[in-house]
Amino acid sequence: MSDVGFHLAFWSLSALTIGGALMIIVSRNLIHAVIFLILSFIGVAGLFITLSADFLALVQILVYVGAIAVLMLFAILLTPRAARDNEESLMRYPAMILMGLVIAAGVFVALETDWGPMREGAIGTQAKIIGESLINQYVLPFEIGAVMLTAALVGAIALARQDDEDLPIHTASLIEEGVLPPPDGDAADAPAGPGDDS
């Protein structure tokens, strides 16, 4: 691809990524923040493509956009009584200073370091190379990663699972009232409530 197209792609995607990230700070609504986060993720995926890392770009969309963002939306919806706003705490000012420092340091390091010889061409067939190195060279981390994912899965389920005593308040009261069957009981055996019609 020529320079013009490449520049166009890089700058617009960078703007998308950083703009999305900034909008997370600005937006007052948590759901809007997640939508901007998705925008940022998509921008990063685009930057991956400009770096000819197609495989990672697709994985980025698949995992970050398709899974992580959806999980966040789900979590927001499942915590309804919590505050929906996306406010900042008093840590704002120190954090802002820190942000400035990090940007300055990053820019300084990026510009002042001699990165050595640069490779010009991109590498093709990345999926193949990554796949082969995952099961040859990096097979142990790969296995550990798999175990960790399983552990996280089990852990998340165990954490988020509701015990019976955690039933919502008035479900419990309805069970006491006899309208609802007890959680492990049979629905047909429940005694009828006194006025069961309306």
């Binding site: 009828a192 006194p194 006025g195 069961d196 019609d197 309306s198």
Partner: peptide
């Protein structure tokens, strides 16, 4: 009569 017949519920209403 609702205590005896639940069927009376809507009709009494």
């Amino acid at each position: 009569l609702t205590a005896l017949y639940r069927g009376a519920h809507l009709q009494e209403r």
